[in-house]
């Protein structure tokens, strides 16, 4: 167990390092450097800048150093001081811009994953036990549709329905009166009332996918010999099912939990943009469209780090569930 965890932990650290390198490369990809853009911005608001100023800025930001040094400086700033650099759009540190919004993104992602598994596991079990029943077919078709509709389209459809049929706008995470209010019970309840729509949207495709996985694995496991053996012992069907095949079928579900988190976080920015949520999504989009590289790059880095960490957590869960993994067996 300890060896396994240590191995996974080291892999996670390695992945984070590789990730930071990739993000850095993306930051460096667009033509021109930060100093040029800074100067351009100053010029556009009417400030007079000379060629010499540009060189000064470049020196000041350390942009005249070779790239490995710049990378090291950048990553050290992040790791040791949590300093992600300056946002060009907002003209303040990226951390200040992201602030509270990151919390919303995390809450949204986590509740989507919880909802996803809360729905997928029972429905998958139901579908496998009642194979080819009307309920099974209904869930199968819903599953197909759930996978086929991209998140953002679902968001648009729900928006459209809420506006045309119910006459209310379900976008955002707060009603207008609570938008800038300090936290209170009323605000929390208002927040929860708004939370469920993006949660459902983000969870849909994952739910559909995991229902399929759960159903297929359980159908497979249900007919395995060890189930027959347990039945031959005289175990009642219900207990039999929950103790053996369901338990075994949970493994692939849990082991892909990290990927589900990845899927949810992956769809989050666009959904947040469509629903105008006050989280990091719209920020990320705006940063990319307006070439605010530090803001965009930082968010990309944060999103990916979250999912890599999620994968690590799901590895731990899997090890807890499966003795073979725990003991380093190949399954």
């Amino acid at each position: 167990m300890r060896a396994f965890l240590l191995r996974r932990f080291l892999i996670m650290i390695g992945m984070l390092a590789l990730l930071s390198l990739i993000v850095f490369i993306i930051l460096e990809l667009p033509p021109g450097d930060f100093a040029e853009r800074h100067v351009y911005q100053l010029k556009s608001i009417g400030i007079f800048v000379t060629e010499e100023d540009l060189l000064n800025y470049r020196h000041q930001f350390g942009l005249d150093r070779p790239w490995p040094e710049r990378y090291l400086r950048w990553i050290t700033n992040i790791v040791t001081r949590g300093n992600f650099g300056l946002s060009l759009i907002y003209r303040k540190p990226v951390t200040d811009v992201i602030g509270e919004r990151l919390g919303f993104t995390a809450i949204l992602a986590i509740s989507a994953v919880i909802l996803l598994y809360g729905l997928a596991i029972p429905i998958g079990i139901y579908s496998a036990i009642h194979q080819y029943s009307i309920g099974d077919y209904t869930f199968t078709i819903l599953g197909y549709v759930g996978i086929a509709i991209p998140n953002f389209m679902l968001a648009l459809v729900l928006l459209y329905i809420s506006v045309t049929v119910f006459g209310t706008n379900v976008g955002g995470l707060f009603s207008p009166e609570y938008l800038d209010a300090p936290w209170s019970w009323a605000r929390l309840i208002d927040f929860l009332k708004h939370l469920w729509i993006p949660t459902i949207i983000l969870g849909t495709s994952g739910t559909a996918f995991q229902i399929r996985t759960m159903r297929a694995t359980l159908l497979d496991e249900k007919n395995k010999l060890y189930v027959t053996v347990a039945r031959a012992k005289g175990l009642p069907e219900g207990r039999l099912l929950m103790k053996y095949p369901v338990r075994v079928a949970l493994n692939p579900i849990v082991s892909t939990m990290g990927w589900e988190l990845t899927r949810v976080i992956s769809g989050a920015p666009i959904v947040a943009f469509v629903l105008a949520l006050p989280d990091t999504g719209p920020l990320f989009l705006r940063a990319l469209l307006d070439e605010d590289i530090y803001l965009g790059g930082s968010l990309l880095m944060i999103y990916s780090a979250l999912t890599i960490f999620g994968t690590f957590l799901s590895d731990i869960m899997l090890a807890l569930l499966d003795p073979r993994i725990r003991q380093g067996e190949k399954v």
């Binding site: 060890y226 053996v229 493994n251």
Partner: peptide, 13 residues
């Protein structure tokens, strides 16, 4: 008792 002693037992218990 059955032919396959490995698959006769649940791997997780």
């Amino acid at each position: 008792i059955f032919q396959e002693p490995l698959s006769s037992f649940s791997p997780l218990h």
